[in-house]
């Protein structure tokens, strides 16, 4: 019961903030442009934060690492 509720809350947060677009990028595979999930804006989500940091160091960008429970 409590696990189910936590999962529901996690899903709620995810849908409010990062939404199904994130799930869509996952469907596309990590590291590939999320065209389906983001209207072709080419936002790319890494699944490994260490890989994201290495990329950020190369590209001179900051990193956003999101932790969330999956459905």
């Amino acid at each position: 019961m409590r696990r189910r509720r936590e999962v529901i809350l996690g899903a709620l947060l995810a849908s409010v903030l990062l939404g199904v677009a994130v799930a869509a990028t996952a469907d596309d595979g990590a590291g590939k442009a999320g065209e389906r999930g983001d209207g072709g804006s080419e936002l790319r989500w890494e699944s490994d934060p260490d890989v994201a940091r290495a990329r950020a160091a190369r590209e001179g960008k900051p990193v956003l690492v999101v932790f969330r429970c999956e459905l």
Binding site: L17, L18, G19, V20, A21, V22, A24, A26, R36, G37, D38, G39, S41, L43, R44, W45, E46, S47, D48, P49, V51, A52, R53, R55, A56, E59, K61, P62, V63, L64, V65, V66, F67, R68, C69, E70
Partner: peptide, 25 residues
């Protein structure tokens, strides 16, 4: 299926990562 525009506008200047399994973190 769209990331909200205002969020997308800011997020594109970041390298993004999402962690759904903490096993290797």
């Amino acid at each position: 299926m769209r990331l909200p525009e205002e969020l997308r506008r800011e997020a594109k200047d970041y390298v993004l990562a999402r962690v759904t399994d903490a096993r290797e973190v």
